[in-house]
Design a protein around this nucleic acid. Structure first.
Lengths: 213, 213, 213, 213
DNA sequence: CAGTAAACGAGACGGTACGTCGTGTCTTAGG
DNA sequence: CCTAAGACACGACGTACCGTCTCGTTTACTG
């Protein structure tokens, strides 16, 4: 993660590197036990074996702390090569669903997004450290499919970027909505259905440039 | 909305009917000004010209109150006949985005979902009063397309229901994710792209029963 | 006790006479269990099997209700003839102490006096229904002692009244202070000591008109 | 006054010494304006320019706080040498009455005593910080009278202590009762009468050891 | 290797909201 | 007109957390 405070110090006692990790882990543990609204910074500080002061010296508040703690979760996502684009997509959908099944992700992510509705800085932080960070999966999956010949190479970089954005919002949005809003299970069958609609839709749209996809 | 307290009373002063509406309106106003986390029940009570006691007599807490207040927002969604399935979908996507652009919906909806991560009763309340309630749009849109001959009639009711669920999560999820998580604008172009992928995907899947869509 | 509301009514349903007694008894029971500050009118109404409305129709509030409930306690005081002035005084001191040992009297009386510090009407109510009412004991005891020849007859009625007041404040004050403020037992030995000082003091003062006692 | 929290802390930010004095003064001011029952700790905190938390960190509640605030009032009592025992007693009676004429003493003292009826710890606190503390006046007055030859020296310490207790309850009780219960003025005439009865009674009892006074 | 500057723990501080409770008033239906 | 029942506006309760502060202590780099 990028440094929270931009200016490096040359003098004085350096900040404990262990404290950062302990605090983020404690934050996730508190999210599991308490959820977003009952999570308190005093409690996180106690769990991390750290004074409240130390915590406030590094993060501006609960929102920022939780975003950092949750963002680390999504770094676990990988895109192992399963032989076909459809299999790759189904695999990452199930991986994503597995993360969203963990309580620290469920309450942490949505709580942060709720706060971001009224906080531009926080919204940008989420966009940068979660959304942009995970779009790598779409980019990587497309490249692999292009190598396999499953997808044509897109010439226009603007069009390519917009397609990545659309697919990311479609897949991530569908999984989050089903898991957290509709409260329905994201199982293998559902992943297959979603993947089928998605890939057929993309393939069809590629032949029909009217919608500029 | 269904009654909050199941048992009707035969005796004593009856509850003020006007209070309910005033409280829900005050809740939305408070969401606009303060957002989820700074919204307080004391403040809502004051805005509604009502005592805190009255509020707690009717709702169990902030979560339940906000869900009811937000649910009313989505009842504004309509499906005007624009002549084609694609136009209908694009229209409802933009309507949905317009609602999600209002601050009371942004912070209220996500805040409630965040809390629902640890509260089964609240999760069911969201599912019933928001999700199931708005699936009517998908059902209605499909019926209209079938009348127009744009979509075949689906024989198996289970398959039909699963398709409705998938499409609802896909569309609602994509719009919510783009608007609230990715923080990108949901404009007409994006709506066209989404609709194109969606309809081509559905059409393709209907010809290929493997994924049972 | 005198009627709380002066105007008699000619029409409508008459007030239940039993309710008054039930309410005062319930008040004393609540004082025993809860003390002054935790006694609530809702609780008293429930104990008396009466609606809160009924209670407020008859008493202005907690203070007035408790004064009436406590005043009845002191009506139990009697002055049985024990053969000598000293014995009579000792007897009434112990009776008084016995009443002050009951929790409804302890907290009720002092609570009312505390409120009376800022409420002239309440202060007058206490003076009339408790203080003046019980001065009968001093007057009666003096008359009996004069019949026995233990005390001379006082000619001047003003002097007589001032002496009654002084003795009442002395005896009642000493007992209340020892029992409730100093928290020491009022036993037979202490009653003897008090009586001795009191009677010798009165006797001496009667011979020495300087202090106009 | 004794420390409220026995354990001294070695670490953390030390408690503000100024806050204690400000809180006690604010408590007395609130008693003057509001009386016992309408005094609220929120109001006291606001007057003292202190958070409610600070107040609850130092006192268990309203009762304890008021006892401490009132106890300080009685420390103003002195026993200036007026040349004779009678004059000394009359002087202290009038001083005591002057304090009881202040509204903070009237409602504070009686309110605390009322609550003490059901609270052993509070009763002991009153006994220690008000009663025992002010018995010094009786002890000092007796010593001075013995030096003057107005009173004999008492050999038996137990008898001496019981006499101090009796006289304190007699004088304090009579003044409190006249001022607060009977609601009659404690003026110079009444002080003379009380003193006369008291001193003659003590003198008589000293010659008659039957009552062991 | 002593000085110094910042990080650290502890916990008090002024605030603010909580959810509950009591007050005294009111509004209904019934006697 | 009284009564029981209970909703109502108001406001205090005592608790909990916030984010800041003031301490005494610890730890590394620097002169």
């Amino acid at each position: 993660m990028q440094s929270r405070t931009p200016a490096p110090r040359a003098t004085g006692r350096p900040r404990s590197a262990a404290a950062d990790a302990a605090i983020l882990a404690a934050t996730r543990a508190a999210l599991v036990e308490l959820g977003w609204s009952r999570l308190t910074l005093s409690d996180v500080a106690f769990r991390a074996g750290v004074a409240k002061t130390t915590l406030y010296r590094r993060w501006a508040g609960k929102n920022e702390l939780v975003v950092d703690a949750v963002a680390e979760l999504f770094d676990e996502l990988e895109l192992p090569d399963r032989g076909s684009l459809a299999a790759d997509v189904e695999g990452v959908v199930l991986q994503f669903a597995a993360i969203l099944d963990r309580p620290e992700a469920r309450s942490g992510l949505m709580g942060a997004v709720a706060e971001a509705a009224r906080d531009d800085v926080l919204r940008e932080r989420i966009r940068a450290s979660i959304v942009e960070r995970q779009k790598r999966l779409v980019v990587e999956g497309r490249a692999r499919a292009q190598e396999r010949g499953e997808l044509p190479y897109e010439e226009d970089p603007r069009t390519a970027a917009r397609t990545v954005d659309l697919i990311f919002d479609l897949v991530a949005g569908a999984v989050v909505h089903r898991a957290l809003v509709s409260s329905e299970p994201v199982d293998a069958d559902w992943a297959v259905s979603l993947t089928q609609v998605l890939l057929l839709g993309i393939a069809g749209a590629a032949q029909n440039p009217a919608g500029s996809v």
